[in-house]
Amino acid sequence: MIIAIASGKGGTGKTTLAANLAKSWEGPVQLLDCDVEEPNAHLFIRGTKLEETSVGVPVPVIDPALCNLCGDCGRFCRYNAIAVVKPLPVIFPELCHGCGGCSLVCPRKAISEKQRRIGVVETLESGDIILIQGRLDVGVSLVPPLIKAVKARLDPALPAILDAPPGTSCPVVTTIRGADYVLLVTEPTPFGLNDLAIAVDMVRELKLPFGVIINRAGSGDERVNVFCREQDIPILLEIPDDRRIAEAYSRGVLMVDALPEYRKMFLGLIDCLMKTISK
């Protein structure tokens, strides 16, 4: 069972939800921090590192003895990573997305591939939680391949919670694709609603079942509730706007640990998810 946690707007509480859900889970559970540009689940789930693997993407290398400057590779590359000029094409590895197309279209088989490192995947253990996180190297902008490497570590035999990056672009789509259920976290503000609507369009396009979690409920207005009612979207949980949650968070302490009364709320959510997914 794979549950992905996404949001349109950033800072609505994806990691808060993911970490508390993982901590409330009964039995072994995997938490995948797919926000590889700034992973932060490890601030709340402090574990022992079991493994670290570097991840790369294949980038082209041109054999000058074989290249006849036909230009097929440069014309094929959507990312403009190859400039075919005399006397030798110039390659920009930082623009390459590693699709491998240039080596396929080269009629003279002049292109081979080498790995360019983009980051690491780390596996940590904390009690029943296996935390798998990606860390993109500084200066790298190619995110989806690292997210795929994080997801490749997922053991399908165990339940998994995927903490997505904010927004609705490629990194988010890469994260939530293949999930059994998507939880969209929002806040009851005009910004929260605006970005929630965009995220709803995204999950509908991907044909994934989803529900909404409202965080800091009571701090804004009712428009998110009205939107969900009109769109027939289930609101699975409303986390109250409780100062004590923020105080615990500021110390890196999860609400289910600092305020045990909230644990019941997350157990109820897990129960609800189990029932919905098995249906």
Binding site: G74, Y79, N80, A81, A83, F92, L95
Partner: peptide
């Protein structure tokens, strides 16, 4: 074509000039 490129406009413009 390069004016509207998502990335690498300068690279392909340079190839065109070449």
């Amino acid at each position: 074509q390069n004016l509207n490129a998502v990335q690498g406009a300068g690279i392909q413009s340079a190839s065109m000039v070449a």
